[in-house]
């Protein structure tokens, strides 16, 4: 009962140093997502429109982040770029979660030679540079949103697979699984009722942590010209396009999408880390003592 009381007590919310950071991160993210959602309604953008009379204008009231070498508003395009990046990030992370979750679940529950083969496969893919592999995948397909999602998803499922597998392996030999087997539960029942529910929060966490990775990967592909078609706003495209303006003194053209990328992905990572601290009782216990 004492132990029980203490555990119950630990579930109460309390102010921790991480709390402020999480609030800031949450606000930043909320603003960014809101801007992405509302942008098409509030500030429609013709992606292919250019205005050569307004090239490389410095930041002003009309253009808070200036314009680029084709006279396009940098802030607005950054918001549209973020839309694309987040979209790709979320979908790619989901692709990674599905592949990684399936591979990890197979390896973790079947064990034996299935486990050995799948894990060697994971090691082999992990040995290749992500970006190179991503480029290879995109190069085989036509540049499009779907190709980028696939490229990122197919290269980012490895850690998810490892997490799911190790989690399952450590659960598999716990006495409560023995008790379930002894009580007559079949393989599917053990997997769906006793194993997966414990793994799912972990999987969700891994997937969320994957989003910033995926966003950076997409940016890198676009920067290299392998992402979206050049006229579409994407953070990577914009940073790349801005290089010319940078030499002409228009620093804002690259800086703005770069800053948006860094601030949003950091906020995402911080929020996920905060969530993890709350989710994982082991981490929580360490924080207590």
């Amino acid at each position: 009962m004492t132990a029980a009381v203490l555990t119950r007590v630990r579930r109460l919310p309390r102010l921790r140093p991480g709390r402020l950071g999480a609030t800031v991160a949450g606000t930043v993210l909320a603003v960014a997502v809101l801007a992405c959602l509302l942008a098409p309604v509030l500030w429609p953008l013709d992606q292919s429109a250019i205005d050569l009379s307004q090239t490389r204008l410095a930041p002003s009231a009309a253009h808070p982040a200036g314009t680029d070498d084709l006279g396009r508003d940098v802030l607005l395009r950054s918001i549209y770029g973020l839309r694309v990046s987040l979209l790709v990030g979320v979908f790619a992370a989901l692709v990674a979660a599905v592949i990684g979750g399936a591979v990890g679940a197979l390896a973790g529950t079947l064990g034996g030679w299935v486990d050995r083969i799948l894990m060697r496969l994971v090691d082999t893919i992990a040995a290749m540079p992500h970006l190179l592999l991503g480029i290879f995948i995109v190069a085989m397909l036509r540049p499009s949103l779907g190709a980028v999602v696939l490229s990122v998803g197919l290269t980012h499922w490895l850690s998810t697979a490892r997490i799911v597998r190790s989690e399952l392996l450590s659960l598999r030999h716990r006495p409560f699984i023995d008790a379930a087997v002894s009580g007559g539960a079949g393989r599917m029942r053990v997997l769906t009722r006793h194993l997966l529910p414990h793994v799912l929060p972990r999987l969700a966490l891994a997937t969320t942590l994957m989003i910033p990775h995926a966003v950076w990967h997409e940016t890198a592909l676009s920067f290299l010209g392998l992402g979206l078609p050049p006229h579409l706003a994407s953070l990577g495209n914009m940073i790349n396009d801005g290089r010319g303006s940078l030499l002409a003194g228009a620093w804002w053209a690259s800086l703005t999408p770069g800053l948006v990328l860094i601030v949003v992905t950091l906020a995402l990572a911080a929020l996920t880390a905060h969530w993890r601290d709350h989710l994982d009782p082991r981490v929580r216990a360490e924080l207590q003592l």
Partner: peptide
């Protein structure tokens, strides 16, 4: 018996009680 509060005694003497105590 378990749940009579004896462990809390030890925690209290060591100053290791949670904050809502």
């Amino acid at each position: 018996e378990s749940g009579c509060g004896k462990s809390v005694l030890a925690h209290a003497l060591l100053g290791l009680l949670p904050r809502n105590a």
